[in-house]
Design a protein around this nucleic acid. Structure first.
Length: 789
RNA sequence: GCCCGGGUGGUGGAAUGGCAGACACGGAGGACUCAAAAUCCUUUGCCGCGAGGCGUGCGGGUUCAAGUCCCGCCCCGGGCACCA
């Protein structure tokens, strides 16, 4: 199958677009000249060329921090690690450690992933979540001279540089070792040392403690700030002040540069740290009059900042960036929170990497003709396990054990002829499949391409009638839990395919709707790990699992919380239509609620009532009114209003209110049926309205109404506009905002008519008799409000 | 902790800043029945005999008018990069 050109062969363009690696190689080679003696002169050495190429590869290998669990022999997810740093399964120690991993350079697409959100019909909160996740922030890089060389920080607030009274670097920062002197300098405050005799001891102890914490735990602002002084000072480039450098775990190595300038007066975390470590606080933005808070993060005039004084935050930022660039000690820059995508897994199930290694250890792509690389057959799915405390053991995935699969003799077509290679034994994450399944669904039996070009263009291509339409699936319904991971990965993947010309759409999902969750009780044991909900018993209001107490909460049904229940019982008892109607009528589709089946008879009753209104229960005969009978005006109006409302509700995916409108119509028709039967046109409209919601019942009734073909081919009903307009309308009359009467006025009555009608009402006249009317608010068709005093 | 969403009767929920509680579940009463189920009808936010008053998580605010807008809290759910 022609899956997109191999990952390893792709690089990003300067603009962030993907392109084949051959193009970049050619570009690099263009700086190459053949010398008369047959040698080749190149502007870049081959090593340099490779370094450039590697810096652009879309898929690349790098060291990345992971949770290594030797006792299980696998890397585990943060959620599988307990609060005390052990594995959920087996309770083995887990070590946070760097390992060689494949990554995808999604960061190269950061700008497009943000900017193209504007072309999508997605819920605004999801767009906000994606923007926050990518976390584009404009700021500056600033170099602070230190005894160990320049310490570079990224800040979004260069305007506050005069208020930087200390610096903090991540405990893992490579500069730390070089910063630590033999002994504490004279200016050291007792609180800074962590009680250690030398900076070296203090720093090493702190680094060990930080390593044991997860990154989520480290960002908890609530907990007490911790850190130690490195023993060195940096020079604040704007005023030459000597400011102490700390290490603290609230600064993360993988965001920005892993180091910050701390400005306590304008950052809450820095303020807290400053208070705890008795560090100076200098305000550089004047807080509003009467400000009693601590750090002030809002806008205001600069102060204590020499040439910035009086400028607003935005102007001060621009002025400071200009100054930094002029002085050569910093520059304006953009950073992203988004990190590259860790793409390799050491498990069995997953797509193997189409990569082999020669004796030289260089990664080579398997040629297209040999794709896809399929998983080998085995019954050994477990990885090798190690001594639980052997932190420096290395994972051996299930594929590593399959020697005759790993060792492979291939002719890669690179001129080297058949050679023996070792396959890469990583597999791709499950996301790899969820990133393009929607494309494969378009053309699942195609054995030449992952999707035929014309098929893709037809279903996913941009709509030329809508300017700026990026293409993509017309409607994608999924849970909000996919807001940042799946939906970002899939967009990235799709854009790569788009850049390479494999698809005509630049986005995978044009309209997104987030349905809510069906929640169910879930139970946690004392380690905060979920246990199988079906095995939990209740005793005197307490919950027990295998005899031990567990705590209850409600959460999304699924395997994470081990709390899934199926609708099978309801289906067996009531059938598919009732199940559908019930689920849709429970509430708006985007709301979450616990699975609770008490109200199911209501949905069942609605369908039975519809049936009985059209079919005689005893004889099974159709019981509509004789042909030629027409609906009463009242029925015609109720019907028109229902059709109008149901249409709008279905367009907006408001199935719950659509069902309520149909229920009202049917309740009305119950009276009509009892009084002689429902006319055929009304009966048919009712059935068509119900068809999308309860298709089986509707189809059956349609046939009984005498139709030989399916109602699936019928047009959805349209309301007669004339029947939607009423002659009169009832409006509430308020006195000081409280409803005191209702009056009936002709539709379209103006303010004067409305007010006159209101004053004519006996109760209103009585209420207004003894008071002065200060103001009359009339909203035609809506209400009258007399403001009295 | 950070980002996003939510909180309305006994219950699920409805309501472009303009009559809070549509529709349904549950409850109460009635009709039909020898009886029961089913069905149909009436009724049902709370307090009050009534007139009336009070009510949309809590506390403030804007407005003639706030469930809806603003500020500050509380609680619940989703996500936090190896669950997918």
């Amino acid at each position: 199958m022609d899956l997109p050109a191999d990952l390893q062969q792709l690089v990003r363009h300067r603009s962030g677009r993907a392109r084949p690696i051959a193009e970049l190689e050619a570009e690099l080679a263009a700086g190459t000249r053949a010398l008369p003696d047959g040698r080749v002169w190149s502007a870049l050495s081959r090593t340099e060329q490779l370094r450039v190429l590697d810096g652009h590869r879309l898929a690349y290998v790098a060291d990345a921090p992971v949770n290594w669990c030797p006792g299980l022999g696998t890397v585990v997810a943060n959620e599988e690690v307990t609060a005390d740093g052990r594995s959920d399964r087996g309770n083995f120690p887990v070590f946070k450690r760097n390992m060689r991993q494949w990554l995808m350079r999604i960061t190269a697409y950061a700008d497009r992933l943000i900017d193209d959100l504007d072309t999508l019909d997605w819920p605004e909160p999801i767009k906000i979540m994606q923007r926050n996740w990518i976390g584009r922030s404009h700021g500056a890089r600033v170099r602070f001279p230190t005894p160990a060389g320049d310490l570079v920080v990224f800040t979004t607030r260069p305007d506050t540089l005069f208020g930087a009274t200390f610096m903090v670097v991540a405990p893992e920062h490579p500069i730390v070792d070089a910063l630590v002197p033999e002994a504490w300098p004279d200016a050291t405050v007792a609180a800074w040392t962590g009680g250690a005799a030398t900076p070296g001891e203090a720093v090493r102890a702190y680094q060990r403690a930080a390593q044991a914490k997860s990154s989520v735990a480290r960002q908890e602002v609530n907990r007490e700030k911790s850190g130690v002084f490195t023993g060195s000072f940096a020079t604040n480039p704007v005023n030459g002040a000597q400011i102490p450098i700390f290490i603290a775990d609230y600064v993360l190595m993988d965001y920005g540069t892993g180091a910050i300038m701390a400005v306590p007066a304008q950052d809450e975390r820095d303020w807290e740290f400053a208070e705890q470590f008795e560090l100076p606080i200098v305000r550089t933005v004047r807080p509003p009059e009467g400000w009693e808070g601590k750090a002030f993060v809002g806008d205001g005039p600069a102060m204590n900042s020499a040439f910035l004084d009086g400028l607003g935050v935005d102007d001060a930022k621009a002025a400071m960036i200009a100054w930094l660039e002029e002085q050569g000690c910093g520059e304006g820059t953009i950073t992203y929170k988004l990190r590259d995508w860790l793409f390799s897994r050491q498990r069995y199930w997953g797509e193997p990497f189409p990569i082999v290694y020669g004796d030289d250890g260089v990664a080579r792509a398997v040629p297209d003709s040999m794709l896809p690389v399929e998983l080998p057959d085995t019954d050994q799915f477990s990885p090798r396990t190690f001594d639980a405390d052997d932190e420096f053991s290395n994972p051996e995935s299930p594929l590593d054990r399959l020697g005759d699969w790993v060792e492979v003799r291939l002719d890669l077509g690179d001129g080297a002829g058949p050679q023996t290679y070792r396959r890469d034994t990583n597999v791709m994450p499950q996301w790899a499949g969820s990133c393009w399944y929607e494309l494969r669904y378009l053309d699942p039996t195609n054995d030449q391409r992952f999707v035929d070009r014309e098929v893709e263009r037809y279903w996913m291509g941009p709509d030329p009638t809508r300017p700026g339409h990026p293409g993509g699936a017309d409607l994608y319904v999924g849970g909000v839990e996919h807001a940042v991971l799946h939906l970002l990965y899939a967009r990235f993947w799709h854009k790569v395919l788009f850049d390479l010309g494999h698809v005509s759409s630049s986005e995978p999902f044009y309209r997104l709707f987030n349905q809510g969750y069906i929640l169910a009780a879930a139970f946690k044991d004392e380690r905060e790990i979920y246990v199988d909900a079906t095995a939990v018993t209740e005793q005197d209001g307490a919950y027990l699992y295998e005899g031990r107490p567990v705590t209850r909460e409600f959460g999304k049904m699924g395997k994470s919380l081990k709390n899934a229940v199926t609708p099978d019982e309801m289906y067996d008892a009531y059938g598919a239509d009732t199940l559908r109607i019930y689920e849709m009528s429970m509430g708006p589709m985007d709301a979450s609620r616990p699975w609770e089946t008490r109200a199911v008879p209501g949905a069942y009753r609605l369908l039975q009532r519809v049936w009985r209104n059209l079919v005689d229960e005893d004889s099974g005969e159709l019981r509509v009114a004789p042909d030629g009978t027409t609906a009463s005006e009242e029925t015609a109006r109720v019907l028109a209003r229902t059709v109008d409302a149901v249409r709008a509700d279905l367009d907006g995916l408001r199935f719950n209110t659509a069902i309520a409108r149909i229920t009202e119509l049917n309740n009305h028709l119950t009276g009509v049926a009892a009084a002689g039967g429902i006319s055929r046109d009304v009966a048919e409209t009712l059935v068509l309205l119900l068809a999308p919601l309860a298709p089986h019942l509707a189809e059956e009734l349609w046939e009984r109404l005498g139709h030989a073909s399916s109602l699936a081919f019928e047009a959805f009903p349209v309301a007669d506009p004339a029947l939607l307009v009423a002659d009169t309308v009832e409006v509430p009359v308020q006195v000081n905002g409280k409803v005191r009467a209702r009056v009936s006025v002709p539709t379209g009555a103006d303010a004067a008519v409305l007010e006159a009608a209101a004053r004519a009402d006996a109760r209103i006249a009585e209420q207004l008799a003894a008071v002065t009317v200060r103001k009359v608010i009339t909203v035609p068709g809506k209400l009258v409000n007399f403001v009295v005093g």
